[in-house]
């Protein structure tokens, strides 16, 4: 960090080693839309609602750009806006219904345990599994962000959207052999990136 940056950080009360992040709304959709969309859909479980919430987040981010201090990354900052949007969404739903909804999953009493215990156990396991899956999803998204944007977009379309080869090739103007080379490189890079924690 240069002398000027250091003086600016000190005058603004930031620690000396804190990196200042920049903001560029033109890059938001390409860089963060998949991450934000995945974050939202795991919480609202409805594609249309998730789409609206992500769009609202981008627009709210644009409006409050001047509040971005550069202390966190752009993505973290956008996620904090999105979190508020998701909470507002649930508030709207609950106020429309007049009360919060509690969901129970009933199943056969195989072991003769009390229903309450079964529910508690089930929800505990589910919560843990959900958290682990979310961590994994975040790790995958982080690894994909390190790759070339076009390469990552091709991989996502083919793998996560399960699009057929012809559709992907038409969308990106590539041949099937190009596609398989890109897929191979991306899978190798992704496996290497995830290796330490997840393999």
């Amino acid at each position: 960090m240069g002398g000027l940056g250091l003086i600016r950080n000190l005058t603004q009360g930031r620690p000396c080693n804190m990196k200042t992040h920049t903001i560029d709304p033109d890059q938001w959709v390409d860089k963060y839309s998949d991450y934000l969309f995945n974050y939202t859909i795991t919480r609202v479980r409805d594609r249309e609602t998730a789409n609206d919430l992500v769009a609202e987040t981008f627009l709210a981010g644009l409006r409050s750009m001047k509040n971005f201090k550069g202390e966190s990354t752009e993505r973290t900052w956008l996620v904090s806006i999105l979190k508020r949007k998701i909470i507002d969404h649930y508030r709207r739903i609950n106020s429309a219904k007049g009360k919060a909804e509690v969901q129970f999953t009933y199943r056969d009493q195989e072991e003769g345990d009390r229903l309450e215990e079964q529910i508690a156990d089930l929800s505990g396991r589910n919560a843990q599994q959900l958290m682990e899956n979310e961590e994994l999803g975040k790790a995958i998204m982080d690894c994909l962000e390190q790759l070339n944007q076009r390469q990552a977009a091709i991989f996502k379309m083919k793998t996560l959207e399960d699009a057929d080869t012809e559709t992907v090739c038409n969308e990106f103007g590539i041949t099937p052999s190009n596609l398989w080379v890109i897929i191979h490189r991306t899978r190798t890079a992704l496996a290497k990136c995830l290796e330490k924690t997840w393999f």
């Binding site: 938001w28 969309f37 789409n51 999803g137 995958i140 996560l160 899978r187 496996a191 995830l194």
Partner: peptide, 30 residues
């Protein structure tokens, strides 16, 4: 193993069309 991890993560991504739409909205707002 990678395929299993990708399935386990159950990732959802937005379509290219959705991305274009958001980009347009952002440009308009700007």
């Amino acid at each position: 193993k990678l395929t299993q991890l990708l399935q386990k993560a159950d990732l959802h991504t937005c379509t290219e069309q959705e991305k274009r739409q958001w980009q347009q909205q952002l440009q308009q707002a700007k």
